[in-house]
Design a protein around this nucleic acid. Structure first.
Lengths: 245, 245
DNA sequence: GAAACAATGTGTAAATATTACATATTTCAT
DNA sequence: ATGAAATATGTAATATTTACACATTGTTTC
């Protein structure tokens, strides 16, 4: 059922019937894919699901879904997060859109990749559900569809982004030690950092709140526990990050 | 003509008929919009076209088009650039995807914004064609659709990006003076920069080639003309830009 | 409970990068 | 020849980053 292209108004040259205009062009299926990062055992993790597609039956894939008729892609991404992890108010950011015509075996499907950061402990993963699994980001070398490419892009994005904004806090528990924070940065950036300089840098940023509490159940001298001052960060981020969007 | 949803294989739970799967979800029209930046008279410009949509008949819009059946969005964006400016091998980068369900009056249309940088002089704009026009980026306060939002996003993106990568060279003639380069940065970042420090910084980056030539037709002492060493930039960008993608 | 251990917590000097600022040089216009 | 207006360059002060050493605190072991 092919509709005719919109016909410009003969006197003005302007298109009046927008519906006809839009209908006359090819349409595509649209998905979102969430790259959900977590942090555990000093390793950066990503939440994956066993592929439900026959041709990728031995592969893992990102958590995604088709966009519904009248939701924005951001809404769709939040919906996927909520449905799969049960979590709300999770950090989420759009990273890139993947549109290779052959990326999906079922036809033309465009996907918009979102990067999400959450605290694994807050998320009650049904371990009984062996369809979902946290993977070490650095151990993956094959995934369904073009998902490894998407993951790689989001990982690079995160590495860059975490050096400009303190996103890492989203991956940590509410209260954390400086050592945990440093382990997180080392895991994401794949480098070793100097303890003293790391500490100095974070204190100079001035959005760590000393809770007065100490670590517990730790083998040696317990470290102080801090909280992230989200409020202060929101107020000041323009200053210390430079021009940004 | 509604197709049934894909039926999982009863024994494995895996989906076999991908076509059915994809067909069973809502589809959307897909466009690319190119934010084409240029530089002239020490002002940052953006190339816009008079809207051909009746409801936006007094507004300007970005250069865009619907994606064809089997081209990637990047290909579509290059096609738009080629068709509208006649130029090839132009700098192009994907910036963001806009998906507000109400952003287009004709129905659900997703658009992927690309940022492009080109040298206005290389581009033979048909000035007779009053449909196309270079606008001062900072003078725009209203556009068709959500194009002002898209432009704003791409402009912020450019401001950030130009401080990490020397993209600005794409906006300048092949040979340029240091003053022109500085004017460009000042126009994009909307700041005044110290001449001496600017010079020092760029020379330390070490991809300016002294052509030995001087400016001509200039009122006072002519400045040296430089070329950008694209080769060296490509080889070294990882080092001086830090982690990036 | 004293000593060894293994972390945390803190300070300081050196190197590097950024900022602020001044003077000499070259060409054009008169 | 002179003055005007830009280019070209250097240097000191400041801020940031890096490298590195020692004291402190709580745990474990004997």
């Amino acid at each position: 059922m092919q509709k005719a292209a919109a016909i410009p108004n003969s006197s003005t040259g302007l298109i009046k019937d927008m519906d006809l205009l839009v209908e006359s062009y090819p349409k595509v299926a649209l998905t979102v894919d969430c790259v959900i990062f977590g942090f555990e055992d000093n390793k950066l993790k990503v939440l994956l699901i066993r592929s439900d597609i026959d041709m990728y039956k031995d592969e893992w894939s990102l958590l995604g879904d088709f966009a519904k008729e009248s939701e924005s892609l951001e809404e769709a991404a939040y919906r996927v997060l909520r449905q799969r992890t049960g979590m709300q108010n999770v950090y989420l950011d759009q990273v890139h859109t993947f549109s290779n015509p052959n990326r999906h075996p079922g036809g033309r499907v465009i996907t918009v990749a979102y990067c999400s950061l959450l605290n694994i402990r807050h998320h009650q993963l049904q371990i009984t559900d062996n369809e979902l699994h946290w993977h070490n980001v650095n151990d993956l070398d094959s995934m369904a569809f073009d998902h490894l490419e998407i993951l790689t892009k989001c990982y690079s994005w995160l590495q860059k982004r975490i050096q400009e904004h303190p996103l890492g806090f989203n991956l940590l528990p509410e209260k954390f030690s400086l050592r945990e924070l440093q382990n997180l940065y080392e895991a994401i950036l794949n480098v070793e950092l100097d303890r003293r300089n790391f500490r100095k840098k974070f204190f100079s940023m001035d959005f760590l709140i000393d809770t007065g509490e100490l670590e517990e159940d730790v083998k040696h001298r317990p470290g102080k526990l801090y909280q992230f001052n989200f409020e202060k960060y929101e107020k000041n981020k323009r200053k210390w990050v430079g021009i940004d969007f």
